[in-house]
């Protein structure tokens, strides 16, 4: 049973690497293709998540648990980057609206 468990764990680690690779390829496709900036930011966010998944699997397969700290830091950086990009898109949208919508609709603030 223990033999089989260890063997199963190795297989599932290999399968997980393949799945992460395929997911990464699809994400990169969306990053290159994505019609709007928001699509690309969603894809970048997903890449940070996939990095966390990869580090988790890698840390499990090598037994070097120090990589877990890298995963947590990557989660933090991914979150901050997404928030910063969202603010950037939001600011851009506000500026665009101020430029185009104010002339025909009175500013009532």
């Amino acid at each position: 049973m223990a033999e089989f468990g260890a063997q199963f764990l190795e297989w599932s680690i290999d399968i997980a690497y393949v799945a992460i690779m395929m997911s990464f390829a699809l994400t990169v496709f969306r990053l290159l293709r994505g019609p709007t900036l928001a699509d690309r930011v969603v894809s970048l966010d997903m890449m940070a998540l996939l990095g966390i998944v990869f580090i988790g699997v890698f840390s499990l397969s090598t037994g070097v648990y120090a990589y877990l700290d890298v995963a947590i830091a990557l989660a933090l950086i991914g979150f901050l980057a997404t928030v910063a990009f969202a603010r950037y898109i939001y600011r851009g949208a506000l500026a665009e609206r101020r430029g185009s919508d104010v002339p025909d609709e009175g500013d009532d603030s």
């Binding site: 997980a16 799945a19 969306r30 997903m46 998944v53």
Partner: peptide, 13 residues
Amino acid sequence: GAAFALIAGIGLF
């Protein structure tokens, strides 16, 4: 977990 990551990638695609 890997299956969910793959599903998320397919969804993104």
